[in-house]
């Protein structure tokens, strides 16, 4: 399959990039790892006349461990996250999700920023980032804005980003002590698949380890966007992390899902899987919280 023709721009600085985006007439798209957009272009689902290659932009690179949060540059690849032990230690669900993306090659090429901007409902990195209360940092013509990642997603393939804006990265506040997280995915295969359903859970236990001080649950591939299961969270917050409460929360998560039937699964089956995976992710996150410092 051949790519359609297009013009390629390779800005050297963030400023240059935003100017190029601002000056665009005709359809301009941003390319980073290229693993999503080039496939869509080969299928002629997208036919941008210009691509802006942002790979050279220093400002979008790197992991920065700040005082109270981690900043992940938009150009960080899934592979960089998957192989980072500190991320495994603090944000296990994120590392777990990134390890499930595509192949060794795709993980090495594809970026977190690309995964989020592509805005697939099944994007693996989104549910874990949501449970860690990620903020999206966006570069605009007038400077930077930061907003909750949850608000970043608007619909399948759609984000809040305006044509002149760029996602610079993600910030993740450090979770409190005694926090554990997990990302579980249901897919027919154990690799090279996308989520039929993905569930991320984060559990913070109280000092005694019996009660769920805080809990976050986010769902992938069962709504137009990655989705926080708020009523499920509320049902479990402050409750003991025990089977009856976990099951009740899982049932609520299933109710909150808005799945569709497609070639990968029926809506009903997806809803059932949400319940099962939510339950399992909560148990697993709880176990990890229990042994976390």
């Amino acid at each position: 399959m051949l790519l359609p023709k297009f013009e390629l721009l390779q800005p050297r600085s963030l400023e240059e990039a935003t100017t190029m985006l601002a000056e665009s007439n005709g359809e301009t798209r941003v390319i980073a790892g290229g693993t999503d957009i080039l496939v869509q272009m080969k299928w002629r689902k997208l036919r941008p006349s210009r691509l802006v290659d942002i790979k050279a932009l220093e400002e979008l690179r790197g992991l920065r461990w700040g005082q109270d949060h981690l900043r992940i540059g938009a150009l960080i690849t899934h592979r960089e996250i998957e192989t980072n032990q500190r991320i495994w230690d603090r944000f296990s669900a994120l590392a777990e999700a990134c390890r499930l993306v595509g192949s060794f090659q795709i993980r090495s090429m594809g970026t977190i920023g690309g995964n989020l901007c592509n805005a697939a409902p099944s994007a693996e990195s989104a549910p874990p980032l949501l449970v860690f209360d990620a903020q999206a940092v966006i570069v605009t013509a007038d400077g930077k804005i930061s907003l909750p990642l949850e608000d970043f997603f608007v619909g399948p393939g759609k984000t809040l980003l305006q044509p002149r804006q760029l996602l610079q990265g993600i910030t993740l506040p450090y979770p409190p002590a005694r926090t554990g997280s997990a990302y579980l995915r249901h897919s027919p295969r154990n690799a090279m698949d996308i989520a039929t359903v993905g569930v991320a859970a984060r559990v913070t236990l109280d000092e005694g380890g019996a009660t769920c001080r805080d809990v976050r649950i986010a769902l992938g591939a069962v709504a137009p966007t990655p989705k926080v299961a708020r009523s499920a969270e509320e049902a479990l917050r402050g409750k003991p992390l025990q089977q009856e409460f976990i099951r009740a929360a899982a049932r609520l998560a299933a109710q909150e899902a808005e799945p569709i039937t497609d070639i990968r699964a029926s809506a009903g089956y997806r809803r059932e899987i949400v319940e099962i995976l939510t339950e399992r992710a909560l148990i697993l996150a709880g176990q990890r919280a229990d042994i976390a410092p």
Partner: peptide, 11 residues
Amino acid sequence: FLDYRLMTPLD
């Protein structure tokens, strides 16, 4: 090959 699923070594 995304949706025509061949078994991977992990399966």
